[in-house]
Design a protein around this nucleic acid. Structure first.
Length: 565
RNA sequence: GCACUCAUAGCUCAGCUGGAUAGAGCAUCGGUUUGCGGUACCGAAGGUCACAGGUUCGAAUCCUGUUGGGUGUACCA
């Protein structure tokens, strides 16, 4: 449910009744429990416009406030804050409704839009490394979120499968002469070996260059080799996606090569708009205020990264029909995206009402604050990192004997992969973050384990109870009240998260929610002796709604829960 | 050189469209229990929000400058 909207409506009514002519601002969550559930700060801002004292305006608003439905109490504080308390009876009904709804009362957007989310984007010439982690899981989370809110979110995996290096790679694959599946197990090594041949043997190097041209002109033999190479390499990626539990499939792949035939058109269209200028033999778009141009065609006639991206933008806006196109790519490329977005808009490749955004993220660092590398300075393979996460997760599991081998594996995967994802998603994506195993696999603080533990703990209540929740929710003490309000904030939080494309808002919310629940549960017994039936049922309902909210929140983050931990 | 970005507690991080005494976790010190999962909960201590100005009723948040770090800077992706 859209909680803020409900409260804003009450405020708005008061404005009308009080005859105050001004578009009311939105309420916001109170900074402290003593200040109520929500607060309205608009009186101060209105003071100057209306030529009245803030407290005077606030008084007038309060006098006209309906305190019999959503709200129950309002107070003026400080210079003119209006603190608002939600009506416990109303809250109780809303929680009850949420509990009886699969979607926890989160509405499906009435006017859904198409959103393209471009993420992961591995290079087929190499194995996925830690640098691909953030893009892959942030992108996947965003698609989950947009989809849950009712939009039509489309995954696009813009894999790097085109370019000069592939000539070398397929020439080497051909030379080895086997089916490739063995030597391609280690792409890094394969690349190194191919490069070694390329540097050492001039004939080989020439053949490699030739093959580049041949693939691009559609030579059947070379294309076949290339296809085989891509298949195997993509297979490696899928292994990672599978471990990571992200939903990318081959259907979502729209590779660089996909846009190959469009590249001349891009240049042509820019030409016809008279946006191109030749500089040092290259075709460039010079943007006003930018020092460096966007090069769309090299002096040798070849096309570049920017050309492909422009073709992709055109495709996504005009063929797919996206109204929002989101690129989940490393922050270092912000200059590149700023440029191609401008070119695309100025050239009319995408309409004005299409939102183009670069969802930039920072780098993963080691404890020393340097980019995350292996001991010998190489890049860390993503698959190794994930395997290690599962191994470390296994160590955190108590009484391993009570599980079968399969159960233990499954549990370790849920914990380990969840920890890696949660640790990453809980950080404000724009900042760099320090990778730390101990922290992410801790039960304390804002971690996946704390959430999963809370969920499992609630499930254990229901194992003991094993009945049906009957009767209504009654909001008793302050903690119950706060917990309920927090539960009702779920949709507001999701909408805000989607708007900002900032998954850490979900983790922050879940952490606040779980913390509140733990406190509530500490003070308010549920199944202990002496709890009357009605109270028991009410608290069970709140526990149930809490668990469902945790599960739904983690599900959007692509993290699983377990009933026993 | 220019552009972008960041700077919050000892450490790791929150802080949403400017709002009240800047919040968590870890680490430190102390407390709660014959416990519905203590892998929990409560409390104490810890801050000149890099620095200096400005905008205003009000600034960690917006603007300018300074310092320090990161990144990007024409035919790689």
């Amino acid at each position: 449910m859209k909680l803020k909207l409900q409260i804003n409506q009450v405020i708005k009514d008061a404005f009308i009744k009080a005859n105050i002519e001004h578009k009311p601002m939105s309420v916001c969550e109170s900074t402290k429990p003593e200040f109520g559930d929500y607060q309205f700060n608009g009186a101060m801002a209105l003071s100057k416009k209306l030529g009245k004292k803030p407290r005077e305006i606030a008084t007038k608003i309060i006098e006209n406030l309906n305190l019999s439905g959503v709200l129950i109490k309002a107070e003026i504080a400080g210079p003119g804050f209006i603190n608002l308390w939600l009506n416990p009876l109303w809250i109780a009904i809303q929680c009850h409704n949420a509990l009886s709804d699969d979607r926890l009362s989160v509405e499906v957007r009435k006017t859904p839009i198409k959103v393209v989310v471009d993420y992961s984007g591995p290079n087929m010439a190499k194995q996925m490394h830690v640098g691909h982690l953030r893009s892959t899981i942030i992108g996947d989370t965003l698609v989950n979120l947009f989809t849950f809110l009712g939009d039509e979110a489309i995954r696009q995996n813009h894999i790097g499968d085109w370019g000069t290096q592939f000539g070398m790679l397929i020439a080497y694959l051909e030379e080895i002469g086997e089916d490739g599946s063995v030597s391609l197990n280690d792409l890094e090594q394969f690349y190194k070996d191919a490069k070694g041949r390329f540097d050492a043997d001039a004939d080989f190097a020439n053949r490699a260059r030739e093959y580049v041209v041949k693939i691009q002109s559609g030579d059947a033999h070379c294309l076949q080799l290339w296809q085989k190479f891509i298949d195997i390499s993509l297979g490696h990626c899928e292994e990672v996606y599978n471990k990571l539990d992200v939903k990318l499939t081959r259907e979502d792949v729209k590779a660089e090569s996909f846009y190959n035939d469009d590249l001349p058109n891009v240049v042509e269209k820019l030409q016809s708009k008279e946006m191109l200028q030749q500089s040092d033999g290259a075709q460039c778009v010079f943007l006003e205020g930018d020092e460096v141009p966007v090069i769309v065609q090299k002096s040798d006639g070849g096309y570049l990264y920017a050309t492909t991206d422009l073709a992709a933008l055109w495709y996504r806006a005009n063929i797919v029909g996206a109204k929002r196109i989101s690129y989940v790519v490393d922050a270092r490329q912000s200059g590149h995206f700023k440029q191609i977005f401008r070119v695309a808009k100025e050239a009319g490749f995408v309409a004005d009402d299409v939102m183009l955004e670069h969802i930039a993220f920072g780098t993963m660092m080691n404890k020393g604050g340097k980019p995350f590398k292996t001991r010998d300075g190489g890049t860390v393979k993503l698959i190794d990192l994930l395997d290690e996460a599962v191994i470390k997760a296994k160590e955190t599991i108590n009484d391993k004997e009570s599980y079968s081998k399969e159960e233990l594996e499954a549990l370790a995967k849920v914990i380990g992969i969840g920890a890696v994802k949660y640790a990453d998603l809980s950080i404000n994506r724009e900042s760099n973050y320090v990778f730390n195993w101990d922290k992410m696999l801790s039960f304390e603080g804002n971690t996946s384990l704390y959430m999963q533990y809370a969920y499992a703990r609630i499930q254990s209540i229901f194992r003991r109870f094993d009945g049906e929740i009957k009767s209504d929710i009654i909001i008793g003490d302050r903690l119950e009240h706060r917990l309920s309000v927090m539960l009702l904030r779920f949709e507001d939080m999701l909408i805000r998260t989607a708007l900002d494309a900032a998954p850490n808002q979900i983790t922050t919310y879940l952490y606040d929610l779980v913390t509140l629940f733990m406190r509530f549960y500490e003070q308010n017994p549920i199944l202990k002796d002496g709890v009357d039936e009605q109270t028991k049922m009410s608290r069970l309902a709140l526990a149930d709604l809490t668990a469902k909210t945790i599960k739904q929140g983690l599900d959007i983050l692509g993290i699983q829960v377990v009933n026993k931990l």
